[in-house]
Structures are given as C-alpha cells and as structure tokens.
C-alpha cells in the first residue's frame, strides 16, 4: 500500500521544483493517494517472460552541421556579452 504523506509531498515538490499554492496541497495529496490506491494492483505483477529487442539505436556520422540561426536561438534580452544571464544559484557556493 503506497501512501504519500505531507512530508513526501514536500520532497516531491523539491525534486520537481514545483511549489504548490497553499490551498492545492491538501487536494493534491488526496488526489494522488486516491490514484495510488486505485492503481496499487500494479504491485502484484509477476516477472514477465523475456522478450528480445533487436532494435538498436542508429548511430550518426560525426559530421558537423551548424544550426542556421544558432545565434538567434537565445533571445537577446537574456544575453550579456553573448553569455546567457541567470539569477545567481545561491545553493552552490559560499
């Protein structure tokens, strides 16, 4: 039986970089647990028979091809001296 506790929900929000508005958390918890309850039959599944997949990833030749409008892909307003500006990442450095 799977159950998402409020603590797990917080952890999931952290993993997914989502921040649920106050009111939604409660409902989300209910919905998710309702879904999990309904689909918990999944835990009964046995190991399936081996199926062979001969399909392989095709490999690309190492030949450079520049994207035509490469310099326009990142909007000018986001750039500073050609570098993409992002708000500081507080967590990483002291």
């Amino acid at each position: 039986m799977f159950n998402i506790s409020p603590e797990i929900l917080k952890h999931l929000e952290e993993l997914a970089q989502l921040e649920l508005p106050e009111g939604l958390e409660e409902k989300m918890l209910q919905d998710l647990n309702h879904i999990l309850g309904t689909f918990q039959i999944i835990s009964r599944v046995e190991v399936p028979p081996e199926t062979t997949t001969a399909f392989s990833s095709p490999l690309r030749e190492d030949e450079p091809k520049s994207f035509e409008n490469a310099s326009q892909l990142l909007g000018q307003s986001r750039l500073q001296d050609g570098l993409l500006k992002v708000k500081p990442v507080l967590e990483e450095e002291d």
Binding site: L12, A16, L18, E19, L24, M28, I35
Partner: peptide, 19 residues
C-alpha cells in the same frame, strides 16, 4: 515561480511521476 505556471493536472502528473 516559473514552474508554478503549470496547470493543476500537469503538476499532478509531474508529482505522481516523480514519486
């Protein structure tokens, strides 16, 4: 804040999938 723009159903599935 940006990802808060996702609608409720998208959030529900992202959370379910992360779980």
């Amino acid at each position: 804040k940006t990802r808060n723009l996702f609608g409720e159903e998208v959030k529900r599935r992202i959370l379910l999938g992360s779980f």
